[in-house]
Design a protein around this nucleic acid. Sequence first.
RNA 1: GCGCCCGUAGCUCAGCUGGACAGAGCAUCGGAUUUCUAAUCCGAGGGUCCCAGGUUCGAGUCCUGGCGGGCGCACCA
Length: 579
Amino acid sequence: MIPSAPTAILRLPMEQFEAPIRRSLAAHTGLPEAEVRIEVPRDAALGDLAFPCFALAKTLRKAPPAIAAELAAAVEGELEGIDAAATGPYVNFTIERALLARSVIEQVLEEGERYGDGTLGGGETVVIDLSSPNIAKPMSVGHLRSTVIGAAIQRILDALGYRTVAINHIGDWGSQFGKLVAAIDRWGESVDLEADPIRSLLALYVRFHEEEEEDPSLAEAARTSFRELESGVEGPVRATWRRLTELSLGEFDKIYKRLGVTFQLVRGEAYFEPMLEETVDRIASVGITEVSEGALIVDLSEIAEGMPPCLLRKSDGTTLYATRDMAALFHRWEEYAFHRCLYVVGADQKLHFRQLKAVLQRMGLEWEPRVEHVWFGMLRLPEGKMSTRKGRVVFLEEVLDRARDEALAIIEEKNPDLAGASEIAEQVGVGAVVFNDLKRERIKDIEFEWDEVLSFEGETGPYVQYTHARLASILRRAEAAGEGGADPDWGALEEAAGVLLRIGRFPAVLRSAGAHAEPSEVTTWVLGLCREVNAWYTRHRVLGQEPALTEARLALVRASATAIARGLAILGLTAPREM
RNA sequence: GCGCCCGUAGCUCAGCUGGACAGAGCAUCGGAUUUCUAAUCCGAGGGUCCCAGGUUCGAGUCCUGGCGGGCGCACCA
């Protein structure tokens, strides 16, 4: 959807230049404005914006370079502050430097921390299902992905004017809780649940699976416990389950706090337990269920050839994961009537979500397309796939701690007098971990490597934060020295075009990232901006120049810092003023 | 076996709805600090864009078929 009011379009800095170019080209080519495709030249020296003439060659029956030359000549006089020149088959446009500087910087400084925000969403509700850890299991680096990607998508959509609802759908139900209760009954004394709940529970879980094979009574005890749990009776099993849940949620909250992630709703699968009957009835009432091999299923082979059926009820009558997810989804629809419902869940569950959607289709529900599985690549350890049962996991808490310690060590070496070093080390360390996870396209698989996570140089979160800190330092010193306040000489920012063009593209980047639910577009953008900023920084001195020059450069620094901070905030990182 | 996803420099990745000589970071080598934070910057080397066909004026980008890797495939979640 495109904002209808022209003023909304003009609020995007690059649109301000692209719009007249598009209009002018449309008039001279006969193309509808929407089809005039403006792109960015490969080589910045060629220009700021470009229009390829290949597509016109056929209709005009002329060679692209000839068309480009004619168009450039025709358009040249019509564009105020924009130079048009033909280079081969392209018309390249170069924005007058002073105009570019003034318009981009003024807009950023005016909008401040709302820079790039839009009204595209029009207040429509987007429900985002993210994180969704399992009770009694450690938050591993695997859960980090869903949490961090989901939270970034939420911030992107918030900025675009959607009303977002982040839901943490806690895995607090299922037969594994029978196992845990049985394990606690048997060996609970051997661990200190209160002191270190997650590690203790993991130890019990692993031990259960180790001893289960030789001791069949264990499996039986687990089944008995789960049956009691499911019965809803307020007995000792339920009490243990409640305790597990509380202990785990307490641990998870520590992590969420460090990551700066909040949820509008935290709700366990157990919440939907009383609704499972009506959920099954609701699907059955459409007449699409059948009994197969004793189980109640929805056949999905007509939706897609070879798609396995969705199981609503096992042959023993109990429900499954899919049943609970259907219940939760119906509930969400009734509660929010969402515009989109995004499930930020790993690639290993693609079939599951295709099946959920297929059931909705078979039910004839028109809102089925609003449900999207925003999947991401799997995280593997060098020694293989992570496995909770085998105890082969990397604890997220440990990753964050090590990153923080590493950041602190670097601060002590490079900036020993820094005030609040431990807080900043936390911000930088956590930032490194989060940024690393958002760096690549979300569908790519990742192999977890300590070296990479603990790297603070090059394309990393700390690099971006450091760029921001250096800019903040200039602003701090300028204020202390009483510099600035003169009339800026915008024409003096000629060599900052790369920085300005990057900053100017942010609103468009945000929109694209929102449409694709792809935080890495923001990451890539902010890294590119920092590269430009750092290159400019080493070649130009801000303070102590002619007042008009210093003022122009200060404005550029201010706008750059604002834009970088904005990008970091979207990704869930802080923008330290010192580090 | 079937389905989905991925395959770009030694490694990790960008490459915008197909468009101008394929770009970064890491690693290697060589440089830059009397001046705003060197967690930085500049330079060098390094690529049959997995392979083979096809569509197109034009393919890393689209289609088909291979090869390699990941994930999944009814009573776990």
